[in-house]
Design a protein around this nucleic acid. Structure first.
Lengths: 337, 337
DNA sequence: TTGAAAGCGCTAACAC
DNA sequence: GTGTTAGCGCTTTCAA
């Protein structure tokens, strides 16, 4: 039973027809070749008897396309347990499902040389790439040399179309919200080196200044938002410019901070208000209710993944797609402010 | 810049050598063909000048293997936001990374006809499959006809190797734990139609009986573990056989139940003890602390994914692998019992 | 050490 | 309508 798999040739021979007659029946798109109903059923019978199924790799080689798209992040290796990745990839998958495409997660670790990554991305296994990276990342120059369709997530990158989110609008909402609550001294928690903050922080600063709030930025944090010595210091000192609200560039940093507060008996929002950014909607059924309902900006990452994949597939199909597609965000008032 | 990509032929021509000489240099495994150092560098130079990279699809066709494995679940469509899926897939990815393989998530939705799924799974795009399904699922018969290497997750399935978890041991631990706490009347929450419970429930029953506990099973639940009318009834009635502990076949059902308790003012664990099963370890940095620390059985799904992928890759490599690999679980005492 | 040639399994243009 | 044929880009055997 487990012999070599039959090829189109085998089927054609058994049905007593030529390869092209048989091919015409299995080819997705309408072939120019016409087959009489009688021949057709003879071929189908033969195929069934032999348990024939077309070989996708041969088809891909011939057609120069694989019906598969890829995802690459230039930040870290993909850990699917991280909400950002699983939400985004879930959206990408949805779009793939709808359009009967496949999603390839290439194997790469942090120390894979860039040429190797470039190779893997452009060696023909995928028809297009969803890219989560930032200006200056070495993969960009490589990809620009290539003809592989690419769409960027969350960041505009010269030479590629992008799906971006309304970081500015979200930052404004938070500034206005805190101002309305009477906060005047803010601590902004963000890493020094991550590019996403480059959108969120300046806008928040601008809006906060306009509203007459003072902002201190702490960028000496652990890469997962652990509380720094400077922060501890600032929180201890009870002076005039003691911050009353902690604005975090993302939810993770907010949760890290709240963990610290819990340990140290700091009451939220009575002693300090805390806000985040990203607002991964918990899965309606599968997630436990979080301990705090964070005030945050909800970014619809699932939807963003879907939109990006849909646009990419259009582009692969030869259509022009807009250079930027801005996805709106939503202010969510929780119990931490 | 963005011309057609050069082929091996192009490189060979430019270097003034034959295709096979050039091939010998790019082929992964040691070729029988030997090339002089001088020729070699001439070829490499030409390749570099033309920005040549081998076409993976052509290689796959020729080699009849793709360095890619797939994942299919026969239960529901893959929602990556569900901890079970993202933990398992994360483990699979880890193994793929380590061995420089790729992971393909095929596009399928619930109503895709089974033949279509079978086709997608066995049309040559993947070298092997990680399967999460149950006895009686129609895909099994199809896959058995094929030569595609398959490894099953969490369930023994005739004809395939499996990575299983110690459901029995975990169930025993819970029974003993509750017994030690003095519980004698238990409500067991499980769906009627899911096969995972077939391992957990009978074992729990056996152990509970041995210990002299009484168990009522409620299987008339919503598919996400919503509380049923019978359960409400049972909880209201305060008779002798009123359950004092609720054992859930998985964490999800436990969380659903606790949500109900919270709404109805039922105190845990004072009024009722609750236990789960699966215990997805929260990601150390990226997840908010859950509202309750559930007493549960921790199943190392990430590790299971890794082990399954490693075994599958061995099998693809031609090695014999054990028919069953049992992964131990760990009792975790939380604050809900 | 190098080159020629035969496929892997399929598609599509073209001739009958 | 149906069959023939030339590749897609690569690997590998075999002969030179």
């Amino acid at each position: 039973m487990k012999n070599k798999r039959p090829t189109l040739d085998d089927v054609a021979k058994r049905a007593g027809v030529s390869k092209s007659a048989a091919a015409a029946i299995f080819v997705q798109k309408q072939s120019t070749v016409r087959v009489s109903p009688e021949t057709r059923s003879r071929i189908l019978l033969a195929a069934q008897e032999m348990n024939y199924r077309p070989n996708a790799v041969a088809t891909s080689l011939r057609r120069q396309s694989t019906n598969t798209i890829g995802y690459y992040t230039g930040y870290v290796t993909v850990d699917l347990r991280v909400p950002f990745h699983n939400h985004l990839l879930n959206g990408i998958r949805q779009a793939c499902d709808e359009q009967k495409r496949h999603l390839l997660l290439q194997g790469t670790f942090p120390d894979t040389p860039i040429e190797q990554i470039y190779n893997d991305l452009t060696d023909g296994k995928i028809d297009g790439l969803i890219l989560h990276s930032h200006a200056g990342h070495p993969i960009l120059d490589y990809l620009r040399q290539d003809r592989l369709p690419v769409i960027s997530i969350a960041e505009k990158l010269a030479g590629f179309s992008a799906v971006t989110i309304d970081d500015a609008g979200g930052s404004n909402s938070i500034a206005e919200h805190l101002h309305a609550l009477g906060h005047r001294h803010i601590l902004y928690r963000a890493p020094g080196d991550v590019h996403t903050t480059s959108q969120r922080y300046p806008q928040f600063m601008t809006m906060a200044s306009e509203l007459g709030m003072e902002v201190v930025r702490d960028s000496h944090l652990g890469s997962f938002g652990e509380v720094s010595a400077m922060e501890e210091e600032l929180l201890r000192s009870g002076g005039r410019s003691h911050p009353t609200a902690i604005v975090c560039w993302n939810d993770l940093f907010a949760h890290q901070f709240m963990r610290h507060c819990k340990k140290n008996g700091i009451k939220i929002p009575d002693d300090l208000a805390v806000t985040g950014f990203d607002g991964y909607a918990p899965h309606p059924f599968f997630e436990a209710a979080p301990a705090y309902e964070l005030t945050t900006i909800r970014v619809p990452w699932v939807e963003i993944g879907r939109i990006a994949a849909q646009l990419l597939l259009k582009q692969i199909g030869g259509a022009e797609i807009p250079l930027e597609t801005l996805v709106p965000v939503e202010f969510v008032c929780g119990t931490t402010s």
